[in-house]
Write a protein that binds this DNA or RNA. Structure first.
Length: 574
DNA sequence: GGGAATGAAAC
DNA sequence: GTTTCATTCCC
């Protein structure tokens, strides 16, 4: 029997009830990919207000109350990601239903419900009051803008699961000021939500252990405990425990996916969009295919290979088990839900992830390195023993570095920048030539990544991240960085630039978590620097206690060495 | 309804 | 510390 949609779960443009969390206007200060978002600095309070998501509270009636938004008259200024108008008149494609929690039965206690007998019958909500959604958090707002803005074209990545992952990576690399802006926006939404629904209280439905004969799950009864809007109405979304299976297990994501997602995120952070983004991704895909890496994508039980689509469940390799395809180890996704649960808990390792525990994107070098093993090493990319691999069990020198993902856009990194060119890739060194260069300690070791550059000295003494880490511990944090960093003008480098500038006051905490794609394709050579030599060094990862926050986030330590031998390229990093 | 992310809020 | 749910839409 097909599953029946709960009432009101389908929101379309047609019904005017689409929930759209539009992006706020840009905050002053460091901008992100400003080169690609014309008007990003056109901060407008009017625009802010016009783009604010609002719940249109209908007068009390017997009509189920749906949250609505007031659509802005104009799209307003764009921020990092363009946000399409919520409901284009010509949009013939209705929106799909969101994953909204089903309405729940009214609370048992009359006191907790505004629809208590004491309420005016005329104002009483219908027995099937509408579910009141939670206010969105900062990331949800960002993701919504990310998706709706078409940051990643659908033909590049149609899967919203992957888009979420990419959004997560991008989110992790957002400059703090911009992230803070989204947090402020989320706070505003919470406040508005609180005003709209004064009595609202989040009441998650904690599942109880399944018991025989219980079918409470399917009997939501259609109704929030709430209903009835007004000053005196206390809205409660009373939840009742229902019998449901334990929370589903997280699926193991193919390393190829992770790498690709990280790469796409890096390109976005680089400021690429539109055809340039498509081209860069296509090139990346092509190169990986040629190297026999990442040629397998498994989506929803289907293995997508260059040769075609193959059902994932029929192979000799079970879900979560490593397979060899085209010489590239890939963690197969399982097909059935039960298999997913089984293999997920197994492959994720009992020591590192408890059952049901949330799985975050692991951008650690260990993870990504494991996800992208060197071609010469077809060994298993994942830890089959469930142990967390040491982040330093990774050999840089054995990696191959693909060519720049931005290919023809290298010219945009010319220095000094051409006044007539319209670079697709904004120059990170957008400072007047007369500006004093920041001073750097030339004693810093060169980046191991540059060891792959023919124009850079090869630090043969570093064969692993561990060596690098040991080396770096002998070097002081960059105290001689002068602010503002020349990198601060670059969209993708603004994070690093800002962090480096903060090194003046907090040398040991100068770097924020950044999305790191250790396939190194994201650290491609880009452009030509006639005056400046940028080197970016890797160092320190959360697992080694060198992170800045909770010890779980990897980060880059960047430094520039003005005295180093000239190289004909800078590193595009993020 | 799973999936994929992060964060708020409730347990 | 764990769990739910907020968004999005293809499958």
């Amino acid at each position: 029997m097909p599953v029946e949609r709960s009432r009101g779960s389908r929101r379309t443009c047609a019904d005017g009830n689409q929930l759209v969390w539009t992006e706020p206007s840009v905050a002053p200060g460091i901008a992100f990919a400003t080169n690609l978002t014309p008007g990003a600095f056109e901060d407008s309070k009017d625009a802010m207000s016009s783009m604010t998501t609002k719940f249109a509270v209908e007068p009390p009636s017997t009509t189920p109350i749906e949250p609505k938004i007031e659509q802005p008259a104009t799209p307003g200024p764009m921020f990092f990601f363009f946000d399409a108008p919520p409901c284009p008149p010509t949009d013939s494609k209705p929106k799909r239903a969101s994953h909204k929690r089903k309405p729940t039965p009214p609370p048992a206690s009359p006191a907790s419900s505004p629809s208590s007998p004491g309420a005016d019958a005329a104002d009483s909500p219908p027995p099937t009051a509408t579910h009141i959604p939670r206010p969105p958090n900062a990331f949800i707002l960002f993701r919504s803008s990310f998706i709706r803005g078409g940051a990643v074209p659908a033909d590049v990545e149609p899967s919203h699961s992957s888009l979420s992952a990419i959004a997560g990576l991008t989110w992790a690399a957002l400059p703090p000021p911009e992230k803070e802006m989204w947090h402020r926006k989320a706070k505003e939404e919470r406040e508005k939500h609180r005003e709209r629904f004064p009595g609202y209280a989040f009441r998650p439905r904690y599942r109880v252990a399944p018991s025989s004969g219980s079918d409470a799950d399917g009997e939501d009864g259609g109704g929030e405990g709430g209903g009835g809007f007004g000053e005196s109405c206390a809205i409660q979304q009373q939840q009742t425990a229902v019998a449901k299976p334990r929370r589903r297990q997280q699926r193991e994501v193919a390393p190829a996916d992770r790498i690709r997602q990280a790469h796409i995120a890096s390109l976005l952070l680089l400021g690429l969009k539109g055809p340039a983004l498509n081209e860069a991704i296509a090139k990346f895909d092509q190169e990986r295919k040629e190297r026999g890496e990442g040629g397998v994508e498994v989506r929803f039980g289907v293995v997508e290979t260059p040769e075609g689509r193959v059902e994932a469940g029929d192979a000799k390799c079970g879900g979560g088990v490593e397979c060899e395809r085209e010489g590239s180890p890939v963690v197969r996704r399982c097909t059935s839900k039960s298999e997913k649960r089984r293999t997920s808990s197994k492959t994720e390792g009992s020591k590192t992830l408890k059952e049901g525990k949330r799985r975050r994107i692991d951008t650690s070098p260990a993870s990504l390195a494991a996800a992208s093993p060197p071609p010469s090493s077809p060994s298993t990319p994942t830890d089959t023993e469930g142990e967390t691999m040491s982040p330093f069990a990774f050999d840089f020198d054995s990696l191959s570095i693909p060519s720049t993902p931005i290919g023809d856009f290298t010219a945009s990194f010319e220095w000094p920048p051409s006044s007539t060119s319209s670079p697709a890739c904004f120059s990170p060194f957008d400072i007047p030539p007369s500006s004093p260069h920041p001073s750097f300690d030339s004693s810093y070791p060169p980046s191991p990544a540059l060891s792959h550059s023919s124009a850079s000295p090869s630090p043969s003494s570093w064969s692993s991240l561990e060596d690098l880490s040991n080396s770096l511990t002998a070097y002081p944090a960059p105290r001689t960085m002068s602010a503002p960093s020349p990198l601060s003008a670059c969209s993708s480098m603004s994070s690093i630039g800002g962090d480096l500038s903060s090194a003046l006051t907090s040398p040991t905490e100068c770097i924020n978590p950044l999305a790191v794609d250790l396939s190194l394709s994201s650290m491609s050579m880009c452009g030509s620097f006639s005056e400046l030599d940028l080197q970016l060094g890797f160092a320190a990862f959360g697992d080694m206690g060198m992170g800045i926050d909770d010890g779980s986030a990897p980060y880059l330590t960047g430094y520039m060495d003005m005295e180093a031998p000239q190289v004909d390229a800078g590193i595009v990093a993020w």
